[in-house]
Design a protein around this nucleic acid. Sequence first.
DNA 1: ATCAAGCTACTACGATTGTAGTTTTTAATA
DNA 2: TATTAAAAACTACAATCGTAGTAGCTTGAT
Lengths: 138, 138
Amino acid sequence: MAKPKEVNLTKFELEIMEVLWDIGEASVREVQEKLHERKRPAYTTVQTIFARLEEKDAVRRTRKIGNAFLFEPLITRKSVYRRLIDQFLDLFGGSAEPVVARLVETGKLTLADLKAIEEQRAVASEPTEGSNRKRGRK
Amino acid sequence: MAKPKEVNLTKFELEIMEVLWDIGEASVREVQEKLHERKRPAYTTVQTIFARLEEKDAVRRTRKIGNAFLFEPLITRKSVYRRLIDQFLDLFGGSAEPVVARLVETGKLTLADLKAIEEQRAVASEPTEGSNRKRGRK
DNA sequence: ATCAAGCTACTACGATTGTAGTTTTTAATA
DNA sequence: TATTAAAAACTACAATCGTAGTAGCTTGAT
């Protein structure tokens, strides 16, 4: 049932999910309008993606407002990210080395960053939960 | 002319390239035999992938031995990895945070690893200021 | 010269994905 | 109630990918 599904999302599906994760529950129209103008696809395209996400049990319809359905996520951002990342690392034989090297090379990862993360983990290691809403930037 | 192409490789194409990068120049048969038995596709499947790699200018025929062609890579492992990684990070809005968090979580990245990499880089680029004492092993 | 084995060249096919059009339903309104 | 605008539902289609079959050419061995 509520078992964390093993869902593979495409890039576009992921973008839709990001919007949905951010606002929790949304109509097709709402999501479509949140997409950046430059790459905003037709309404029906977004509809199609929603249909596929439903098919994959990644979202579900909650209720109907007027004649539009609202959708909500059935999978967490965290679980999707985890899967994406693990699959990606498999490309390199599971070794993180090329990825880390590139992160350092592009300045996206510094010692300070890592320290912060490790400390955070040390502190927050017991209250296991997936209610992680804030997106770290930087 | 020999400009580093922007080549997108699929998982399977990448596996073929890995073999080719390892041995430098190889026939279809050689590559096919190097693939792990469990997931070894038919000879003609590998051939098809080679044709697609040729199409993408990722490999080129060098010479003919008997009636078999030999192929060599036209792109470097490093450039492919870089592209893969950068594209992957784009999925997360270019933020490395989720990836780093996962690496730490799975124990694939520790402070020590990062220190080693950073020092290596510092040394490799320019030995300016003196905050490096330990050198990377590996 | 013949022939088998291996190789190339060509073709095929289903699944997935990005993309959107067409038809039908429904809710709001004139 | 008849009209209409929006959304749903269904359908389509081309590109890419994993996968491999088949036909025909090359070559080394009889």
